[in-house]
Design a protein around this nucleic acid. Structure first.
Lengths: 169, 169
DNA sequence: CGCATCATGTAAGCTGTTACATGATTAT
DNA sequence: ATAATCATGTAACAGCTTACATGATGCG
């Protein structure tokens, strides 16, 4: 159900086209929920059918801008506050971090180094976003979420550095 | 593919029955990858067919203990070291953490407090596991992973506390 | 003997991925 | 013109969930 509510959540902030939602999933939500356009367009159609979103404008190239309806806003609120969260996770990176310890020291080091450079890159990106938000000076709703991403990535980065040092001669 | 490799990873440590694997997914891997028995049994059958695991013993109640074959061990290594990681995430808790900021202050507080008590519980559990490992004194392979879980949960806990304080009068 | 738990499986339906397909608009 | 990117969709297949189904063993 997260796809559905992620879409409602993004539309709660700004009315958007399916194409724009696809980009937002790639940018803001990529560390929470991944979705591609082939899933987003059909889901938007279902949500419209259910009366939770509606087309509030049409632009060039047959683009349709969707916005939340009041029932949509209420349904999002209900899910966030009242629905029992599904804590089940499915995170390949985390599986890898878990299993990498089974490798021999050389392979382990290779794997951890690859992960480290990825996390370092992601950290830089997030810090870039934070800087941008600070420069804009506005009260961006998702600023704390960016901060959380930075802190989590920092913890992972430091842990990876320790693992690599432990493996050193 | 993570299910497949998670199973290979667990079997690399200890030969196990499908039932035992189901429990391990629930305990050790629950923060990385969730899987239920209805997925695990068919996957074991596929892995056996592919020659990556084999039945190395039979116990009471028709139980079958599976172990890794050499090709299985090699395939696990290949995946961990050579395969390009899929970084896409799909984590409902994270979606909730992200979208909760859209709620009005009262609802937001409710949602964050529910999350906080969940994380605090999970943290206590992980610290219990760490204590156990220390008491055993052995060199448990997954001790660093437990440590990482504790650090990540600590960061999330502190972030949630800040969010709740920010919302306070 | 009855209940809990161990233990394994299957099937229908939903969710997600990859690939295919098409057309509109803008920039060079 | 033509290439890039904007923009929306569909279809086949793989992965996952929920529910159904069955039987064995150990304990009180």
């Amino acid at each position: 159900m997260s796809l559905r509510y992620s879409i409602l959540g993004l539309l709660a902030r700004t009315p958007s086209t399916g194409y724009e939602l696809t980009q937002m999933f790639d940018r803001s939500l990529r560390t929470s929920w991944h979705a591609s356009h082939s899933q987003i367009y059909p889901e938007l159609a279902k949500l419209e059918h259910a009366g939770l979103v509606e087309v509030i404008g049409r632009g060039p190239r047959r683009s349709k801008t969707y916005g939340l309806t009041n029932p949509g806003r209420e349904e999002l609120r209900r899910w966030l506050v009242e629905a029992e969260p599904d804590r089940a996770q499915r995170n390949e990176s985390s599986v890898r971090l878990f299993l990498t310890n089974l490798l021999d020291p050389t392979d382990r080091r290779t794997a951890y180094e690859r992960d480290l450079s990825h996390v370092e890159k992601e950290l830089e990106e997030l810090k870039g976003v934070r800087r941008q938000l600070q420069d804009e000076g506005g009260a961006e709703v998702f600023a704390p979420q960016v901060e959380l991403g930075i802190r989590v990535d920092t913890v992972i980065r430091d842990w990876l550095r320790e693992r690599i040092e432990d493996a050193a001669p």
